[in-house]
Every structure is written in C-alpha cells, then in structure tokens.
C-alpha cells in the first residue's frame, strides 16, 4: 500500500468471524497531511466491513475535529488500504467462513 503518512492497524486480533472490526489510526508523518491534525493520539474506532465505507469514517473523523477536511481523501485511502488487506487475509485464511 502507498505510504500516506497515516497508519491504520487492527486494534484487536481478527478471527474472521465478525463483520465489525476494531481499528486504530494515527499520524506517522504529519507533513503528508494538508491540514494540522488535532493532536498526536491514536484514534480507535469500529468499522463494519459489510455496511460501512472508509469514506464514512473519514468524514466522521473530520466532523469530530480530528482532521482538516482537505485530508478526507488521505484518511479514507489509509483506512481503505488496511480494510482491503484485512479482507484479503480473511479470504485467504478463513475461506470457509466467507
């Protein structure tokens, strides 16, 4: 995945059973963002792989004041890349459950 300067990782072990996963997002390289992030924390949130889109979460983070609206695309892309990897792993490791 492209280095967006924003890191997204699983916040809990993924057993492939739940459609909702916990993710943690933090800024590794603020210079890659157009706006200034609110603070230097890791933001933990849940994401429904079946019902939600990375754009939904990115929009809510912006509305909650964590990021400037000009960084919507980079936040959404960072989440999308991680979600794609999680789904790829699920299909590979637990194909029967899919």
């Amino acid at each position: 995945a492209e280095d967006t300067g924003v890191r997204v990782e699983l916040a809990e072990e993924d057993h492939g059973r739940k459609s909702t996963i916990a993710l943690r997002l933090w800024v590794e390289d603020p210079k890659k963002l157009k706006g200034k992030p609110k603070d230097n924390g890791a933001i933990e949130f849940t994401f429904d792989l079946e019902k939600e889109t990375p754009e939904d979460v990115a929009q809510e983070m912006i509305e909650s004041g964590f990021f400037h609206e000009s960084d919507m695309k980079i936040i959404a892309k960072s989440i999308r890349d991680r979600v794609a990897l999680i789904q790829w792993r699920r299909e590979r490791i637990w194909p029967v459950l899919q």
Partner: peptide, 27 residues
C-alpha cells in the same frame, strides 16, 4: 486516564490514546 472519548452525532465512538513513542516515525 489518558484516554479521551469522542462520540460523533452518527453514534460512532472514537477513543483517543497516546501513541507509544516506538510507533512514531523518526523524522
């Protein structure tokens, strides 16, 4: 506690915690 919780109007919870130094990229 150093955790901060922000609830968006759509209901999603964001829990903010400090990033360990080891996870931050050195510039």
């Amino acid at each position: 506690s150093s955790l901060t919780q922000v609830v968006h109007s759509a209901g999603r919870r964001f829990i903010v915690s400090p990033v360990p130094e080891s996870r931050l990229r050195e510039s």
